[in-house]
Design a protein around this nucleic acid. Structure first.
Ligand code: SF4
Ligand code: SF4
Lengths: 143, 143
DNA sequence: ACATAATCAGATTATTTTGTCCGAATAAAT
DNA sequence: ATTTATTCGGACAAAATAATCTGATTATGT
């Protein structure tokens, strides 16, 4: 069981938080990111490749190459990463897995789940990455 | 990507809601449950087998056998089904996938996620299956 | 007792997700 | 130009999840 997001998406968010927190270092090698986060190197590299295609991450090839954040962190929200990797279908789906989710045919937990989805959406939308710098650095230290 | 719970768990909750809503019918065949819910018959049968082992569901073998709810629906909560199938680890895990989740080393969204987890827990805990009967029947009709 | 209809239990297959490997391309330093 | 360190991109492998099949077992009706 996953907690809402796929590993791909979790690692993607972690890696982008890392890049935003350490953006003054310039490009950072996938290997450094992977060892700091304790996640598989090739996997995180692959995820960052796809985020490069989405325009969130910048990559530089060759010696002294690596990844960096492509835009101002003040313009990136966590939901942008979720949208790029897992997509946003979860915000239109049912916790219990019933089909045809709508207020006209509510399942037993419809009201509460709707509220939860809104809160989750806000959590990923209200703040931009620049606000997360200190907490990210502290969290990564403890991994 | 799943929305919090595995298919196994989603189908389990749906099937138990079904059994609770139609408990006056006595035992119900896996095939009827599967066709009403539009889920794979053998899969739902397997899940109900494991819920039988957990004591939530009763099963009767042989001709005119089937499944029924084993306890009073007023004593079963959705979280009991989640606990039996997916387990409750999600209530101690991070949305972003960081390890060592704790208030001492909070990740960027720790506060909001903590609140969300509590609401999700309440959603699955506060009501018992007997309260869901009407909504379940209406929802199943529309599948 | 026998035939029938159903669950049970476990083996098996399929699909998706997660993770790894490797050759080609690229860029910097010598 | 050559060497070296790196990403890129796609193929590949492993693991987890979802779904199916099959034979044994059990209970009912005749
Ligand atoms: S709670 Fe019910 S109506 Fe709402 S999304 Fe889930 S199944 Fe659909
Ligand atoms: S929000 Fe941070 S501290 Fe809280 S569970 Fe997630 S990673 Fe752990």
């Amino acid at each position: 069981m996953t907690v809402i997001f796929s590993k791909k998406c979790e690692y993607g968010m972690q890696a982008v938080l890392y890049l935003a927190a350490y953006m003054e270092k310039g490009v950072i090698r996938a290997e450094d990111i992977a060892s700091s986060l304790k996640v598989p190197k090739e996997f995180v590299s692959k995820i960052l490749q796809s985020l490069t295609a989405s325009g969130i991450v910048y990559s530089k090839k060759g010696k002294f190459g690596g990844f960096s954040i492509a835009k101002d962190p003040a313009q990136i929200r966590l939901i942008d990463i979720v949208a790029a990797i897992d997509g946003l279908e979860m915000f239109n789906s049912c916790v219990i897995g019933f089909p045809h989710c709508s207020p006209e045919t509510p399942c037993p937990v419809h009201d509460k789940w709707g509220e939860l989805r809104t809160l989750a959406y806000n959590m990923l939308t209200e703040e931009t990455l620049d606000n997360f710098k200190d907490k990210t650095i502290n969290k990564i230290r403890t991994i």
